[in-house]
């Protein structure tokens, strides 16, 4: 568990095939649950999720810099089901509307000047999305 392997998992759903229904994505993108410890790393990594750019939460407060563009994520596991969290991560616009500033992390864009090295790729891999969801599920209100 938790090791990111280069070989594509047969069960992995590609970004263009994810079905968002009623602001939820029911099934795991990889077919298996993610690793919350890995997820917390992607959450703060500037290169990957960089969620801390916009969100703070008690657990990550040891990090010197976090943003306040989005709401703090404490208790987010009580507010949203796993499927809802997955939809938010895959494509925040499907939940918050087309105007939201929160990027979709499992989407691929054409024709909007995506830098070459990122073309055809989502911000996070399916495994990383599942890891972040596993991490978010630990953020419960005490």
């Amino acid at each position: 568990l938790g090791t990111v392997t280069a070989t594509a998992n047969a069960a992995t759903i590609e970004p263009q095939d994810v079905v968002i229904r009623d602001a939820e994505v029911e099934a795991s993108l990889t077919g298996s649950p993610g690793d919350p410890v890995e997820g917390s790393k992607w959450f703060k990594s500037r290169k990957l999720g960089n969620c801390l750019a916009c969100h703070g939460n008690r657990d990550q407060i040891g990090e010197p810099f976090h943003g306040d563009i989005g709401p703090p994520l404490d208790g987010v596991a009580d507010r949203y089901s796993e499927g809802e969290l997955r939809a938010i991560l895959v494509n925040a616009k499907s939940v918050f509307g087309p105007e939201t500033i929160m990027p979709g992390f499992y989407r691929v864009f054409d024709g909007q000047r995506v830098r070459e090295e990122f073309q055809g790729k989502p911000v996070l891999t399916a495994t990383q999305v599942e890891d972040v969801i596993a991490y978010l599920k630990t953020l419960k209100e005490e």
Partner: peptide, 22 residues
């Protein structure tokens, strides 16, 4: 634009005064 799918207006009109990381 870009992989993060953001426009100037999203950051500089919607959220000025707020922090984006540091």
């Amino acid at each position: 634009v870009g992989q993060l799918d953001l426009a100037c207006v999203n950051c500089h009109q919607g959220y000025y005064g707020q922090s984006i990381r540091a």
